[in-house]
Simulated scan of single mutants.
Amino acid sequence: MTIVQRFLSWTHGNRWIWSAIAVVIVWIILSVVTNRFSLSSVSGVVLSASFLTLISLGQMFVLSTGRGNIDLSIPAVLTLSAFVALIVIRGEDANLVAGVLAALFLGLGIGAVNAFLVVIIGIPAIIATLSSGFVLATATLLANRAIPGFAVSPTLRYIATAKIGGLPVMAIVAFATVVLAAIVLRYSVYGKQLSATGQSRDAARLAGVAVKRIEASAFFISSTLASLTGLFLGAFVGGAFLEMGQAYLLQSIAAVVVGGTLIFGGSSTAFGTMFASILLILIVTTMQIMSLPLGTQNMVQGVVVILVLALAGVERSARGKRKTPDEDGSPEVSGEMGQASQ
Rank of each mutant, 00 (worst) to 15 (best):
L86S: 12
A176C: 07
G91I: 03
G107P: 04
R157F: 15
I110H: 08
Y158Q: 11
N144G: 13
V88E: 04
L96Y: 14
F116E: 13
V135S: 01
V77M: 03
A174V: 08
N114P: 12
A171S: 11
G122E: 10
S132K: 00
A115Y: 11
A146M: 15
A137F: 13
L130V: 00
F83P: 04
A181N: 02
V135D: 03
A112Y: 08
A125L: 02
I121S: 07
I147Y: 03
A103R: 06
A76N: 05
L72A: 01
S153Q: 10
L72R: 00
I110A: 08
A76Y: 02
I121F: 09
A82Q: 02
L80V: 01
I121Q: 10
L78T: 04
A115H: 09
T129M: 00
I121W: 07
A182P: 11
A103V: 12
S73C: 00
G166P: 00
R90V: 13
N144H: 05
I159N: 03
F150T: 14
Y158A: 15
A94N: 13
V88T: 05
V169Y: 10
A162P: 07
A162T: 06
S132T: 14
P168H: 14
F116G: 09
N95I: 04
G111T: 07
V135W: 09
A76R: 02
V178W: 12
L96T: 09
G149T: 06
S153Y: 05
S132N: 13
A143L: 11
A115C: 09
I123E: 03
E92P: 01
I126L: 10
P75G: 05
A171Q: 06
L108D: 07
P124N: 04
A160S: 13
A125N: 02
N144F: 05
A125Q: 01
S81F: 07
L136S: 01
S132F: 04
N144E: 13
T138E: 03
I74V: 15
I123D: 03
R157M: 12
F175Y: 08
T140F: 08
V152Y: 12
T138I: 12
F105K: 00
E92Q: 14
A162Y: 05
V152S: 04
A85E: 12
A162M: 03
V100G: 13
V152L: 08
T140A: 14
P75D: 02
K163M: 11
A125E: 01
P148W: 09
I127L: 09
S81G: 03
G166R: 00
R145K: 15
G122A: 10
I120H: 13
A82Y: 04
A94I: 08
V152I: 15
G107A: 00
D93Y: 05
G133P: 02
T177H: 08
A85C: 13
A162D: 12
